[in-house]
Computed example of a mutant assay.
Amino acid sequence: MDLSRFPRRQYTEGFSAIEFLPNFTRALGGPKVWIKRDDMLGLAPGGNKTRKLEFLMGDALAKGADTLITCGAPQSNHCRITLSAAVKEGLKCRFVIEERVPNSYDPNASGNNFMYRLLGVEAITVVPGGTNMAEAMEKMAAEARSQGRKPYIIPGGGSNAVGGLGYVACAQELQQQLFEMGQPMDYVVVGSGSSGTHGGLVAGFLGNNIRIPLVGIGVSRDPSDQNPLVLKEAQAIMDLLQTGIRVPQEAVVSHGDWWRPKYSVPNPAMVEAVQMLARTEAILLDPVYTGKIMAGLIGLSRKGFFKPEDNVLFLHTGGATALHAYESVILGDPLAAK
């Protein structure tokens, strides 16, 4: 899969590390858990959106953009990293924030909301849950155009075919790393939300003949709703790359048992996962995404889906900045998170 014809900005030197987690593996009782540290990618302070933004920013700059417009929920990691990229490139950045949980946006909150202010977001518009975000961003873009700007709209999560190229590149990187390590993997576990990361890996695994089962853990939807989104994203990437490959439905697997009660709302399994990885390996997860994804890995292990002898790679997509907005939940009684 040739990515060289697409404009790209490079924000990370080298590959993100793959580490074995011996203490966590012992605490869990197997399988053997490894982690790919995409939380350590470039752009403050790292995360999966950096890979997507390398291609999205390449496209934006090639089109002469001077203002980025994107959207997300309160405490959005995607918004924070998009803003970081804008700062790096000397562009302005504006957000549309969707209050999926009513009254959840606090402009003076810590976590990513603090980072928005520190990094200098130009404008934030808050809209109620269920708003058509594409229309809301286009309205913001029209306002920017009326001011003589050249806006570039980035969808939520950076999830479109251009952004998905970042995780095709990740699949190629992973294939090279595992070859050099001489370490086969039985499964790769990835978060499945706006679908760009999961869909990009599905496309990258198929296109590069990587025959490792890819297990998605939903952070906002059950498989019946999530899998079609991932399939559509993977196919859009294949079409953009002109591979001629049709993505089969069975290539998309996700589990939806760990995201409830709602997107971004804590639950006890997430609290356990965040505490467990912090206290065994000193690695930080976030409450909205990686905490629930790791809760899925733990839950599937306890159900016997993963066997003790399996090697399972967890893709750490970042987001620890948001931990600071959830301190009382993470450090309190896990049952209080219900």
Rank of each mutant, 00 (worst) to 15 (best):
R8T: 10
Y11G: 07
E19V: 05
P22C: 09
P31K: 02
D38Y: 02
L41Q: 08
G64T: 12
T70G: 09
A73S: 12
P74A: 06
N77Y: 04
C79D: 05
T82R: 04
F95M: 09
I97P: 02
E99S: 04
P102Q: 07
N103S: 13
N112F: 01
V126C: 01
P128K: 09
A141F: 06
A141M: 08
A141D: 11
S146Q: 15
S146A: 15
G148L: 11
P155S: 14
G158E: 03
V162R: 04
Y167R: 13
Y167D: 05
A171C: 12
E173F: 03
Q176R: 15
L178T: 10
L178M: 11
M181C: 10
S192C: 13
G207E: 14
N209T: 14
V215M: 01
G216E: 00
I217Q: 00
L231M: 12
E233R: 08
D239T: 08
P248E: 06
V253M: 14
Y263F: 13
N267A: 07
Q275V: 07
M276V: 06
A282P: 01
K292D: 05
I293M: 00
A295Q: 06
I298T: 08
R302N: 14
K303R: 14
K303E: 09
N311H: 11
N311Q: 11
G319D: 07
A336D: 15
A336Y: 03
